[in-house]
């Protein structure tokens, strides 16, 4: 018995059209996906908004508190700190893209083991963030970490840096590890972009007596613009989604100096039980991400036109 016959048998009284039959099948097939999306995307979106006006105690009872949770934003110094840190970490994007571009230009050439190098530079990206954080936690230890050992030994610093236990350096550590992890990702995207540039362009430029630097500035860069735009956009979204690295490497510390929005809202909700305030922080994060994505899309569309 075909599905069509089955549907006809279950719906005998309705003399449904071919399109109607198809609609029933289509909607049935969509049930699991739509259920999950409604439960885990759309319901939370609405519920989160409701939560911002509520206070919830540990037993799960809620009470209406008006705009109290929003007012709290203004008096929370950690929120400002986290917001600033999120913005600082956006700096990993230009750094990562620059290094990634350099690597891509290098590995776009054909030389011994160049393919193996591509995989090598991409490797940090595929390793689980928690493991990355664990590896670096021990490497960045002040007293017996290998990074300080190498820095002191080569004479770059006179005494070990307290990477994870001083405020500024903790954020620098997060920054550097994030660059290490994402550079390979940018490299792969840019490599794909480079391969779309026709080699004839360079040959013509060569005949016209253009130098390699001119070739890079007037052919490679302009044609890579859309690719680099994608890198920036993906990088920004990824940087707001960052959680594992900060949580494991510094846990936002010391004294919240490397806190970011996501770790702070996690702690507010699941360590302190302030679900209402955490929901407000979530809305801030969501608004930021939405703004970035829409700006990115507009710019991208304008670049294409």
């Amino acid at each position: 018995m075909t599905a069509r016959e089955r549907v006809e048998r279950t719906l005998p009284s309705l003399s449904i059209s071919k399109r109607g039959r198809r609609s029933v099948i289509a909607w049935l097939a969509l049930v699991p996906t739509l259920t999950i999306l409604i439960l885990y995307r759309f319901v939370p979106l609405g519920w989160n908004f409701v939560l911002t006006f509520q206070e919830m105690n540990y037993t799960g009872e809620t009470s209406f508190v008006g705009l109290d949770n929003y007012r709290r934003l203004a008096t929370d110094p950690v929120f400002v700190e986290a917001l600033v840190n999120n913005v600082v970490l956006l700096g990993t994007i230009p750094v990562g893209i620059t290094v990634g571009l350099g690597l891509a230009l290098l590995l776009n050439k054909d030389f011994f083991a160049s393919n193996a190098f591509r995989s090598l530079f991409f490797l940090p990206y595929i390793v689980m963030m928690v493991a990355v954080a664990v590896i670096w936690t021990f490497m960045l230890k002040t007293d017996n970490g290998v990074v300080n050992y190498l820095l002191v030994r080569t004479g770059l610093v006179s005494e070990g840096i307290s990477w994870l236990s001083s405020g500024t350096w903790a954020l620098v550590s997060v920054f550097l590890v994030h660059v290490w992890k994402t550079t390979g990702f940018y490299m792969v995207i840019i490599l794909a972009g480079l391969q779309t540039i026709p080699t004839q362009l360079y040959e013509v430029a060569d005949i016209d007596g253009a130098s390699r630097i001119q070739g890079f500035l007037y052919i490679t860069l302009p044609l890579l613009k859309p690719t680099l735009g994608v890198c920036v956009l993906v990088g920004m979204i990824a940087s707001f989604r960052l959680f594992d690295l900060v949580f494991v490497l510094t846990n936002g510390g010391p004294a919240h100096e490397s806190e970011i929005l996501l770790t702070w809202l996690y702690k507010q909700a699941f360590s302190f039980g302030n679900f209402g305030y955490a929901a407000v922080l979530t809305i801030v994060l969501f608004a930021l991400m939405l703004a970035i994505v829409s700006i990115g899309w507009t710019l991208q569309r304008r670049a294409v036109q």
Binding site: R41, V43, L45, W47, L51, L262, A278, T282, L285, M289
Partner: peptide, 19 residues
């Protein structure tokens, strides 16, 4: 589907936990 893609899971974790 497109709208759901625009909602990052990270920004729904608190109510998602309640769900």
């Amino acid at each position: 589907l497109i709208t759901a893609m625009m909602i990052p899971f990270q920004t729904t974790i608190i109510p998602a936990f309640l769900v």
